[in-house]
Design a protein around this nucleic acid. Structure first.
Lengths: 217, 217
DNA sequence: GATAATCTAGTACCAAAGTCGGAGAAGGGA
DNA sequence: TCCCTTCTCCGACTTTGGTACTAGATTATC
């Protein structure tokens, strides 16, 4: 009984590479490739794979959102997050969204095959680094204090390099208001400056490299 | 006569994938894999490949630096930059460093084989997007005014979220000096704030996501 | 030996960022 | 109805960031 795998990654090289490698294992069968979360959801519906390999940083629909939707709709499909991003929020986000595994892209290719088989079997697979993050979160029940909707909006603009004045203008509020939001954001994230907040936002994928490239500066 | 290829990428999955795929082409032979620029240089010396596939975003020694050293020392070895980053400075940087090709990771795997063969033959290979960036740079002889060594150093720290005072402390200079450097950086990059400069540095891969994850904030 | 670039650092100044505390309006529960 | 959160905004303040200009020391270059 072969395990049917759906690959999701926005980079063609990675997709082809995974397909090539996994294709050599007679127990695995790559049934499709998706380039973003939306495609992944659609193809998961159509193909009904056993396991989805899911990149987290993708355009259109990110991997965590896609994972959530797939797991909600097709609970028999297991999802393994396979990403180069290691971040507390990503790990717990993926796990909360229903991923059964979290592996880093520097995982040895051999291990990957084993992890997929284990996942198809319902067994949890975590990279040691990811496991540590989860442990840390459980031990210290530090709810990193979720940002409100508005704060998230502001943070996104900060992470695109905008000044308070510009943000105020874009959101049709006063600069004082923006400052208040920024202060609150810094406190909740535990960072010391808007630059750190911007980098944080990038780190957790709140804004993507692609979005950054839209900025003209 | 097979073409000997050295793969350089810090992600195991990508390396394995490339090796698998390229291995299927009888005209190509993957003679080695390197996980960073330093390894790439060493292995290029030892193995004398015809073509090096070089990721630009890597720890230890970035791809542009490695490209420069390889081309300087082993001019018969051709280097193809293979990366997910598309940025003016990366493209012209790689080209200046001596890369004969610049391809994106979303390149179809078929094209990659063809590109490698062309490169071994001394033919230039550019992704259309990369070609456009080069064109633009040639048309508008806007030399983005290269940063000096020290400025680059400062920018890296800015991009890790450090304040001027911290940077001054780390580099054993006065805060005034750091400010002077930062001002000069902003002017050269054409950006308006340190946050934008930090994002710029990230965009061009001066600092990587991985490095960001080392920061404790 | 002159020239240019870089790194250093100063002064003076202004703008932007961020803090602290308070406060009114709107909306959703309990 | 009362409570809680969020969003809005204020004043007053401190700190950080950034500009403009100048200038000595060092080093590489011609």
């Amino acid at each position: 009984m072969t395990i049917r795998v759906l690959i999701t990654d926005d980079h063609g090289v990675v997709r082809q590479g995974l397909r090539m490698y996994l294709g050599l294992d007679p127990e695995l069968e790559v049934v499709g490739e998706a380039a973003n979360g939306e495609e992944a959801l659609r193809m998961a519906r159509e193909l009904g794979p056993d396991v989805v390999l899911m990149d987290l940083l993708m355009p259109v629909m990110d991997g965590i959102a896609a994972t959530g939707k797939i797991r909600a709709e097709l609970p028999e499909v297991e999802v393994i997050a396979l990403t180069s991003v290691l971040e507390d929020a990503s790990v717990s986000g993926a796990v909360r969204a229903g991923a059964i595994g979290y592996l880093l892209k520097n995982t040895e290719a051999d291990d990957l095959g084993r992890a997929i088989k284990a996942a198809a079997d319902g067994q949890v697979q975590l990279a040691p680094e990811a496991a540590m993050r989860l442990m840390r979160e459980v031990r210290a029940p530090e709810s990193p204090e979720a940002l409100t909707e508005r704060e998230t909006e502001v943070l996104k603009l900060v992470a695109r390099g905008k000044a308070n004045k510009q943000i105020a203008h874009e959101l049709f509020v006063g600069e004082k208001t923006v400052k208040a939001h920024v202060s609150s954001i810094l406190a909740k994230l535990g960072v010391q400056s808007r630059t750190q907040a911007a980098l944080y936002a990038l780190r957790i994928g709140l804004v993507s490299m692609e979005e950054l490239n839209e900025e003209s500066w």
